[in-house]
Amino acid sequence: MNTFLKCTVAAIALTGFSSMAQAEGKLSIYHWFEYIPQELLDKFAKEYDVEVTMDTFDSNEAMLAALKAGKMGSYDVTVPGDYMVEIMAGEGLLDTFEPSELSNYSNIQPQWLDVSFDPGRKSSIPYQWGSTSFSVNRDKFKGDINTTNILFDPPAELRGKINVLDTQGELLTLASIHLGIPQCSSDREQLKALNKLVQDAKVHWASFGSDTAKDVLVSGDAHAGMIWSGFSAKARNEGANIEYAYPKEGYIVWMDNVVLLKDAPNRENALKFMNFLLEPENAAAVTNFAQYTAGVAGTESFLTEELKTSPESNPPSGPVGHFVQACPQEVQVLYDAIWTNLKK
């Protein structure tokens, strides 16, 4: 509900702004839902005298589909996850820029400067990074939660009260981590095992939902739920007595990135916006809102106290995080078959 309210408020605010001020230029953003604070967009609009509009999506795949179905040329920037940057570059959807075009380029943290999904950071800048695992309601279950069994072989207290993200990539990756098989495996036995695992686990799942992942934990509809780290922190802040798990088998890490789209109608403003987001204060504003971690140096002094110690943003040293891989076509077809099988 919160998402919808915020979107509505944002939409009303944006229409209000556009009619009030005849802005110098425009900027069109395609962004994840409930991620960037409206105040930050307003700040950019005011500072650069630019009219900002934003549409939202709820999965990397939905964003790619919309862009390929004819939305290219209407947005300037979007915010794909790591593997999706690689896919979009491969599809020829991204424009490149020179580091010299961004005066704040040097603020990028060194470990995020040269990344496998965009070598040399030619089309993207780091935005926020975090992890995907699951959270458990501590009133309902007191045992050990740091194991992927919680989702795939749940204890009796949690059965039938579990929500999983409605995103194929993350769910099947976490399932692969649970089984200890490599991502994008084309081995028949391993794929059959993966198929059987999710089929068997599904009887214990109450629902599939991504944009509802926080809401079901806060309302108590679900006692455990697969969720993104920051989204879980928000659920905790909204009163749910939940704990975010770092399973010993491993979990997913991801980084969202701001990319410059090919055929961007306002390339100049897009670069201004990207540069704006590399400003530590502004990166911190997103972090404070979304509860993830910025890929920009120097944000510490702008962060809220609780964020510095938040368990969702400070993974323990033991368990390993894995990036989701983009599978080749012949494997992806099998993943799709498993997914359809799961939902048939």
Binding site: E61, L64, A65, K68, D166, S207, Y335, D336, K343
Partner: peptide
């Protein structure tokens, strides 16, 4: 319904918004 099972509408939606996009 919790999106646990496809209906015709969600099956079609998945072909356009899903991973492989068929």
């Amino acid at each position: 319904g919790g999106a646990k099972t496809f209906m015709i509408g969600s099956l079609i939606e998945e072909q356009f918004k899903g991973n492989a996009g068929n």
